[in-house]
Nucleic acid binder design. Structure first.
Lengths: 194, 194
DNA sequence: CTCCTTATAGAAAATATCTTCTAGAAGATA
DNA sequence: TATCTTCTAGAAGATATTTTCTATAAGGAG
């Protein structure tokens, strides 16, 4: 076999770049191939369809994002502190991987589920399984319960808030320290006296 | 002339529905025509291209969203209270017009600017002019200055936060009162002691 | 009534996009 | 070396999508 001259990662990077700059509608295999400097045939050698390619680049971004949250130690004794640390880690991840963060905003989970089936559908459907355990654990530590309402507030604080804080800075290209500084207080506002 | 049997609004509604449910990639004129129960010819009678249609439906959503903010009275004496009121109005607007809110997440301003030109481009480019005045006024009242950093925090509190609070509830379909209750505190966390 | 304008209606043409296919190159294996 | 497999390469074919075009209908103006 000839060694791969184009890595799969490079193709995913190119797809991400195209999606982020031209939007989901502009993400054609030709545009992606040109961005990557790869012939179209080589893309189909790695991915069975454009839909699979889109799902794969999304899954890669979600996986990294979740891993960064799961790496933060969560102490049940100080749940608010832990939640703030996780939120900051998530925010920092968005800033350090802006293309991943923007990608997650450009393609929706529901949309991908709709164009996907088989094994890949399962993979997309179960993507949140692991992180939801941590969410439930924190909900119990913070509120003494892990029902839907409690878990929803934790998701708001740990996922929605950091992404909301980061997103505009990513699109505009400039990040200021002020937003980051205020994130812990916002997390507390969401989670305190529940 | 025969009276219009299909309103332009109905076509925009159909486009919005398709974009929100199938994503930007699924928004073909045929899909929109079928959703609206309109022949494709009639769509081209109102819009010069699919790109213009997408821009129009986005502009309609942004216009409504901004109008709801601008309707809230802003008292320079109590800037934090005013900011909280505006944020709540924005949040409530997202909940009451979920399809508009989801649409704004599905199509990005930058993406539309890229596929648009002429008069429509100008319209897209200048869409924030009016609301930015209110942002600057609030920044001055809150922080005593209206430089980029100060205005950015106001945008975070008034736009990004309410959308972040609302978004997940819109995709999942269920809204709980808990998120709304915590929004004012989160706004305060972002804007206090600046 | 007759003409004129505006709109519906959907078929047809023009593009764009996705996917498959064939040819060949390059290392691995025997 | 001969053969096998994996990959590059891009042209060709199959679909999908956008856009144009022609025919028709329906009301208003003269």
């Amino acid at each position: 076999m000839t060694r791969q001259v184009f890595s799969t990662e490079a193709i995913l990077d190119a797809a991400r770049e195209v999606i982020v700059t031209r939007g989901a509608r502009g993400a054609t295999v030709e545009a992606i191939a040109r961005q990557a400097g790869v012939p179209v045939g080589s893309i189909y050698h790695r991915f069975s369809s454009i839909d699979e390619l889109l799902a794969r680049v999304w899954l890669r971004a979600v996986g990294r994002s979740q891993r960064c949250s799961l790496e933060v130690p969560v102490a049940a004794k100080r749940p608010l502190r832990s939640a703030q640390a996780v939120a900051l880690a998530m925010y920092d991840h968005c800033i350090s991987e802006p293309l991943d963060a923007l990608l997650l905003d450009a393609l929706s989970h529901a949309e991908l589920l709709a164009i996907t089936d088989g094994e890949l559908y399962e993979e997309l459907a179960s993507v949140n399984a692991e992180i939801e355990k941590m969410i439930a654990r924190l909900a119990r530590a913070l509120f003494g319960r892990a029902d839907r309402a409690a878990r929803d507030l934790v998701v708001l604080a740990l996922v929605d808030l950091p992404h909301g804080f980061a997103h505009r800075q990513l699109s505009s290209g400039r990040a200021t320290p002020a937003r980051r500084e205020r994130l812990p207080a916002a997390v507390a506002a969401v989670l305190e006296d529940g």
